[in-house]
Design a protein around this nucleic acid. Structure first.
Lengths: 198, 198
DNA sequence: TCTTTTCCGATGCACTTGCATCATAACCGC
DNA sequence: GCGGTTATGATGCAAGTGCATCGGAAAAGA
């Protein structure tokens, strides 16, 4: 058997490089050469990992998409001490909204991809799927809050989830655009969730 | 006096071309040549109107930014028949959220620019200013609703405006990403406004 | 050690980009 | 008309792009 290489690891590494570049200087700054340099591999290696540039970008999106979902799931799973559903919901949403400073890069990447979704069919598909997953998550959280009687039972979980997700994404945009600081955005979110609990 | 040309008109025309291109095939598709072709002028003309490409894009952003604001203002000013503050607010927000199909292009452009805001100082400034203006507008609308006693007086107009703007922008993103149709997005918005009126 | 198979990375290539240049055309006051 | 001024658009140019190519390096089994 000839030389073998851990492609999965390299792909991830390249995806990280893509994110770093997008976050630092926008999406147009992502050229194969730049990515290769950032990931500290040769251009040939990048071309071997991904057939085209679009494939590479798509993989990067799926990567951060997955990371965001995972983080949210973990936060919920890690609730060993029985936490108030209210704070669980607001914290999860804050996570999804990528508000903290270190998520700023991911938010930047995310938005860049959304901006390109109308252009690329495949990209749109990934986004659609991710949003559906997140929506389900939020619906579940609201239901949980209703079980613990923190949220009134007459709430329409599906509708509320739509609104909550919209608020979260809107705040992501606002923070990125400089209209909000992460703190004020977080406060807005918190307030909205508290309101649900009446 | 030599040949004179209506620069303002040409600038607007070019700005429209930029928007059309961005909407059609994303922001990377905007090259000086493409813009010139789309606007049906020569490349030299474009270069005469705008010193650099960045200037051109910035002007295009300011253009649509202004158009959106104007449309919202007009909708309010045109309220000859005394309209319910509730519907006035929700319609205005729907307008701002660029939900209808023909605003899709503008939404696309807007988002593209937001995505580039962290990169460009000047771009961020324009966005910041616009958001501030919109916020003031929504605050005023809520206050108006309180005057007509449609909204409870204890509402914190500033905070509610923040949430409303976030919902609107979030929905813009969701529609663009294919997570919502304009109709469902509009319904979510409507629901949220109705909720304010208790 | 040698062979074989995979991987690497440098180079080439056709193309596009933003911007500069400049001869020419279009215009206005005279 | 005519001179002087300004706008125009074709062309040039260097830099950068994604992708294809390919000789040889590297590793694992013989």
């Amino acid at each position: 058997m000839p030389k073998q290489v851990d492609y999965e690891e390299r792909r991830l590494r390249i995806a990280e490089a893509v994110c770093a570049l997008v976050a630092r200087s926008g999406m147009e700054a992502v050229s194969l050469r730049d990515v290769a340099a950032e990931a500290d591999v040769s251009m040939g290696a990048v071309q071997r990992c991904f057939r085209t540039k679009e494939d590479m970008l798509l993989f990067a999106l799926e990567h951060i998409s997955q990371r965001v979902s995972e983080r949210a799931d973990q936060r919920i799973a890690a609730t060993s001490t029985p936490q108030a559903a209210t704070t669980l919901l607001s914290h999860t949403l804050a996570e999804l909204a990528l508000l903290d400073e270190e998520s700023r890069a991911q938010a930047h990447v995310w938005l860049a991809f959304v901006g390109h979704a109308p252009t690329s069919e495949r990209l749109a598909a990934v986004l659609h799927e991710t949003y559906a997953k997140l929506h389900d998550l939020v619906v579940w959280l609201i239901g949980y809050g209703q079980d613990t009687q923190e949220f009134p039972p007459h709430l329409d979980a599906v509708q509320e989830a739509h609104t909550l997700l919209a608020v979260a994404d809107g705040l992501t945009v606002h923070v990125l655009a400089g209209h909000h600081s992460p703190e004020t955005a977080s406060a807005v979110l918190q307030r909205h969730v508290d309101r649900l609990a009446r």
